[in-house]
């Protein structure tokens, strides 16, 4: 266990170093921005991964929480002139409360039924974003979201925002790591492997599932907050059903039940459209094919899948 903890510390130290290195050596604002988007997507994937990978509960409506975070801060800062730093906890709290209320009946479902319940919830929230136009700006979107500032530091420059986002990512990674290594983490994995068995050995599955659901909503809302203050403009399309599916795809492609998998999945799904750009008309076809092929041949995601291949190759060498 001690050994394992040391390794983890090294991992996070290397990771933080890489972030600092990237932040200071990369000059071009475009790459900084791409990496910032990757950071936001990583937060989305991480939250959902806690729910899907560790607790084994699927959600096809998580973009709703992403949206609540973004619209929450937009409404509070613009309509009520609240400081963004007060809007942040408020937006996260709003997402958590919604998750709690929705989670109670929804998490009683399982399998496809759970998927459908969360999908329906996500669609309804998205329609609210679109139709409640006096508050949300409707389909035209919400403009004029302010720049983040902290005392003398303005986060209007790409580099500062990059550090802010990745700082949140790093903190979230450590929080999730702690949860996973704790008693709760073991209980979660028990639910993932078999809900009935878990409850038979005394795990309060209902409470635990709800807690993880609320936690993952909080991460999504945080990502929404960061997105809103990065782009300064939000519209309902960003938080649609497609966005929810993209989040699930990040988790599944990257690798379920793996913190680093979330990072990989988010990176790939942010960069993939850039690479596929060359295919122009064929972009959608290629994207669809990649999704199918990865899932058919590496159903446990790229992280586990590539490791399996690597281990198999190693075994052959040993013989």
């Amino acid at each position: 266990m001690n050994n394992h903890q040391t390794r983890n510390r090294i991992c996070y130290a290397v990771f933080s170093l890489l972030i600092i290195l990237a932040g200071y050596t990369i000059e071009n604002p475009y790459y900084i921005q791409v990496l910032t988007f990757i950071g936001i997507n990583t937060l989305l994937a991480l939250g959902l991964n806690m729910l899907m990978g560790y607790a084994g509960q699927i959600s096809l409506g998580h973009a709703a929480f992403f949206g609540i975070g973004a619209y929450g801060t937009a409404i509070l800062t613009v309509h009520y002139n609240l400081s963004p730093w007060l809007a942040l906890p408020a937006a996260i709290a709003a997402a958590m409360i919604v998750a709690y209320i929705v989670g109670i009946p929804t998490l009683k479902l399982s399998g496809y039924y759970l998927g459908m319940g969360t999908l329906g919830f996500g669609m309804i929230v998205n329609i609210l974003f679109r139709e409640w136009s006096s508050v949300t700006g409707g389909a035209s979107g919400f403009i004029g979201i302010p720049t983040l500032e902290l005392g003398p530091v303005s986060f209007s420059s790409g580099r500062n925002y990059f550090f802010l986002v990745w700082g949140f990512v790093l903190t979230s990674f450590i929080i999730c790591q702690r949860i996973i290594d704790s008693r709760i983490g073991r209980a979660l994995r028990a639910i993932h492997d078999g809900e009935k068995a878990a409850s038979a050995v005394g795990v309060d599955t209902r409470k635990l599932k709800l807690q993880v659901f609320v936690l993952s909503a909080a991460f999504s809302a945080l990502a929404g907050f960061l997105y809103a203050h990065l782009v300064f403009f939000i519209s309902p399309g960003t938080f649609s059903f497609i966005a929810s599916i993209r989040m699930v795809t990040m988790v599944v492609i990257g690798g379920m039940a793996s913190i680093w998998g979330s990072l990989l999945g988010a990176s790939l799904l942010t960069l993939l459209p850039e690479w596929l750009h060359a295919f122009s008309e064929f972009e959608m076809v290629v994207y669809g094919l990649i999704l199918m092929i990865v899932m058919i041949f590496l159903p446990r995601g790229l992280t586990r899948g590539l490791l399996d291949i690597y281990e198999r190759a190693n075994k052959k060498n040993d013989h």
Partner: peptide, 26 residues
């Protein structure tokens, strides 16, 4: 089971990311 191998996935992913970022930043 997953816990034991966490060191390796991380290295793997970081190396992939490094290659990816090289590709992007060339």
């Amino acid at each position: 089971m997953l816990l034991v191998n966490r060191y390796r996935p991380m290295m793997l992913i970081l190396s992939i990311m490094a290659i990816a970022s090289l590709l992007v930043t060339s």
